[in-house]
């Protein structure tokens, strides 16, 4: 079963929820935590995994054979991302703009373009106690997180409970992370900002036809806008976490909620039950 954890807004507690969820289920289920926030993976700070393997993530970029090229300019014309320019007898390629679609190579009338791999990031795998841990990391200077997110998801094991920690926002890397999930847990805070971005996130998951539910974090401040919206939009609130000094203190020391305050593990296990009731799916206990 795949459960993604997302939020429109940044800093709402996605990573704390994802890691606490994994931590709370690890004794009863086989659990995977996949950090798909590849521009700033940080679940590892809470779960402290030991990595034993690093796999490279590449996209293909064009390589031009000058002996075959007649500088006709077709490649530059067909490139939707302006990653190739042809001037006089020079072909300039811009790998950082290339999306690896292969159109230049496919449509070159002289078969002068081959595709070569360009490393854009890595996927690291290991374990944090009983939790199997996967994280993607986008390389420095690279601008395409989405292929790294897709690669992270290649490691999903549907027989386990796979918890995917997505990036904030609603753009391509987030969509890639949520897509094909059985359920999406949205995390937000009870403020006008949390509400604004939650609406965007809900639109996104509904477009992807992934059922969703809410974790409302830092309750006790703000307003009732999020709760009113959830009632109207028929989004179940599966868990509320108060704004609490103890939670903040553990957080500040890099300790996730369910580890620092074990009484919360039961709450997270109940979240899984609620998700299973909604999706009708069940993972058997270990």
């Amino acid at each position: 079963m795949i459960i993604s954890v997302a939020s429109g807004k940044g800093g709402t507690g996605k990573t704390m929820v994802a890691t606490s969820f994994a931590f709370s289920l690890k004794n009863d289920f086989q659990v995977q935590l996949l950090d798909a926030d590849v521009e700033e993976p940080n679940s590892h700070i809470f779960l402290k995994p030991v990595f034993d393997k690093t796999d490279e993530v590449s996209v293909t970029v064009p390589s031009v054979n000058k002996d075959r090229c007649n500088y006709c300019g077709t490649c530059a014309e067909v490139c939707a991302f302006n990653a190739i320019a042809v001037v006089k007898d020079v072909v300039l390629t811009f790998p950082e703009l290339c999306h690896g679609c292969g159109a230049c190579s496919y449509l070159c009338p002289r078969q002068a373009i081959s595709e070569i791999p360009n490393r854009i990031g890595v996927v690291e795998t290991g374990s944090a106690g009983k939790i199997s841990f996967v994280q993607g990391k986008l390389g420095i200077g690279q601008t395409m997180p989405t292929p790294v997110v897709r690669k992270v998801k290649d490691y999903v094991n549907r027989k386990k409970i796979a918890i995917i920690d997505a990036a904030p926002g609603t753009s391509c890397p987030v969509i890639a992370a949520i897509k094909d999930s059985d359920f999406c847990l949205l995390v937000t805070e009870p403020t006008p900002f949390g509400l604004n971005d939650l609406k965007l996130a809900v639109e996104t998951v509904r477009q992807l036809e992934v059922p969703c539910g809410l974790v409302l974090n830092r309750t006790g401040v703000g307003d009732s806008g999020v709760e009113e919206y959830c009632r109207k939009a028929n989004i179940p609130i599966l868990l509320t976490i108060p704004l609490d000094l103890n939670i903040a203190r553990f957080y500040s020391e890099g300790i996730t909620l369910a580890e620092g305050m074990p009484e919360w593990q039961k709450e997270f296990r109940e979240v899984l039950q609620k998700i299973q009731e909604i999706t009708g799916e069940r993972n058997s206990s270990t």
């Binding site: 530059a76 991302f81 302006n82 990653a83 320019a85 042809v86 001037v87 006089k88 300039l92 811009f94």
Partner: peptide
Amino acid sequence: GGGAGIATAQMIT
């Protein structure tokens, strides 16, 4: 969407 400078320069050449 991206690479505007490249596309524009290509046209100017």
